[in-house]
Design a protein around this nucleic acid. Structure first.
Lengths: 186, 186
DNA sequence: CCTACCGATCGGTAGG
DNA sequence: CCTACCGATCGGTAGG
């Protein structure tokens, strides 16, 4: 891991714990183990760290939706894929994912791009739901409400899973996917 | 509305938009229409505003659970009550509710009390699920996962509802409650 | 409710 | 990667 990656990882942890605005570069330097001024040999700015965290995740979500759309599967199976991918992303990058709900507002240059990717993802999700209804695999649910409900649950996963030692990742995937899908299946 | 209430309401709106730490008392004073120093004739501190917002909500949630528990109803009906109450609270105090996920960490004196009330509420929710299973009204679901899934959806509601002009409040209550409960009913 | 102001801390730069 | 430092801004107080 490069020093830059280490700084970004520790930064994500601090941002996650105290919030972006309330974390100072002095706090970060202390945790990394260097003087505040030295951080700037590895990163351009505080904003640079947030940017790196959130845009990296945005890319993962976009890739997930893109790949799923290209598969030769039913819409419901594609839906299960993107749900599994979201669970994987949440468990692989929990601290970065925890920044999404609250800290994306502090993005500057990348903010519009981030919003664009997020909207595109949600649009793709709704399309998969619509298709699944058309294919007869799920009931005629309210698309907006169901999308919002499923994505809310997935967005909050990082806050919940690490507190719980009961379920393995695969059990979680199965239980959670079933929980989210079964309620709307035909 | 007293001046204090006005300051707190505008404060909640700014905290909600930019975050607690990133909102300055100068920003707030400008929006309220007075000099920064004058705010302190109505509030004790910046923290005082956050405290007021979050503890007021905590009280509403606690009251909701308390009242539901005293009713002569099935556990499932009690569950529907607290879900309805949460929807009401989210729609009545959307900006204050939006502070919960990210800004409770900035509480100081009240933080432990806030966490206590939240944990007590979640415990009550799980108990209602358990009882509903015992009473044969819902399937033998994973309690932790189902609690987390329902509460996540409700917690995110404020972010979603105002963007949507389709559903009336009562339609929302019915559709959402059905969506949350139906998937786990027997 | 305002003017005037305080010490502390902020993100970041210069220069080596 | 460090020492030394900058201008800006912060939450809040004194005194009227």
């Amino acid at each position: 891991m490069t020093k830059r990656e280490e700084i970004i990882q520790i930064g994500a942890r601090l941002f996650s714990k105290r919030g972006y605005a309330a974390t100072s570069m002095r706090d970060l330097a202390r945790e990394v183990g260097m003087e505040p001024a030295s951080l700037y040999n590895h990163i351009k700015s505080k904003q640079d760290i947030l940017d790196d965290c959130l845009m990296m995740l945005a890319q993962l979500y976009a890739d997930s939706m893109q790949k799923a759309s290209e598969l030769d599967l039913s819409a419901l199976q594609k839906l299960e894929r993107v749900i599994h991918d979201q669970i994987d992303i949440s468990l692989t990058h929990p601290t970065k994912v925890s920044l999404i709900p609250a800290e994306w507002v502090h993005l500057e240059k990348s903010k519009q791009q981030f919003i664009g990717i997020r909207n595109h993802y949600e649009e793709g999700f709704k399309q998969l739901l619509l298709q699944s209804i058309a294919e007869g695999d799920i009931r005629k649910v309210n698309i907006e409400l169901t999308t919002f409900s499923i994505l809310s649950t997935l967005r909050w996963l990082h806050n919940w899973y690490d507190v719980e030692g009961q379920l393995s990742i695969d059990e979680l995937k199965n239980e959670l996917t079933q929980n989210l899908i079964e309620g709307i299946s035909t």
